[in-house]
Amino acid sequence: MPLAGTPLSPQRRRFLQDAARAAGGCVVAGTLLAYLARDARALPAEALRPPGALPEDDFLSACIRCGLCVRDCPYDTLKLAQLGADAGATGTPYFTARDVPCEMCDDIPCVAACPTGALDPALDNIDDAKMGVAVLVDQENCLNYLGLRCDVCYRVCPVIDEAITLEPSHNTRSGHHAIFAPTVHAERCTGCGMCEKSCVLPEAAIKVLPARLARGSSADHYRKGWEEKDAKGAPVVEGIIDLPDRLPGPGTDNLAAPGGYEPGYSLPGIGQ
């Protein structure tokens, strides 16, 4: 029997029409939902995730927004993002360093409380947490950069002398003082926010930012010549002749630049 002559059942046509309509509706609704879900990924820079939080993309697939980390935080640092508040996906935990920083509890109760592993239980040492990276964002207002000895961010840092150090340099304004520049070492900074919380300025000059904003990255193929040279124990390029550097100073034939003067101090690292 020729197929073309087979009468199509009206029920079949109806079923196909209904299914097509439902599928179409689902595509529209699903697109909207996907847009909302992707939109939810934009976490504001001030909102920091708790210690051990998976990278944001993974976090949103893992966090069920139950709030147990908030309950177990002994310092009421953590909050759940409220709908419509500028704090990331609704119901997910975050903290604002300038309000209440993370106190870096040794037993990391928030991670222990997380039932799903959105806060990674592999984090067993709070010093390894990476909630963000502190950045001295405003050198023009930072009191230490002005030549004063505020040092508060350095003093309060739970990883003092490792995450934040004071790097001395010459104060060219006064000519005979030092500037002790608070300097963050990102590989040791946990992003707890104690420095930002404690900054004495009305608006903190040092802020904890998510790593994506705080850090650049070195290209994979870059090699530092001086490190390579040290590793090899000889100049990296065979046969290269390392001539003495002609710098001002005693022991060279260039005691003073022509028409110049003897420097009042020695540049660090330029000895004879």
């Binding site: 939902l33 939810a40 993974d58 927004r65 759940l80 409220q82 709908l83 119901g91």
Partner: peptide, 24 residues
């Protein structure tokens, strides 16, 4: 999307969480 999608609009957990943690 790799996101727990319904939690973006789920009024059940939002209301429940709202009552317990703050309404927004």
């Amino acid at each position: 999307t790799g996101v727990i999608a319904w939690e973006v609009i789920n009024p059940i957990t939002m209301l429940h969480r709202g009552l317990i943690f703050g309404m927004g």
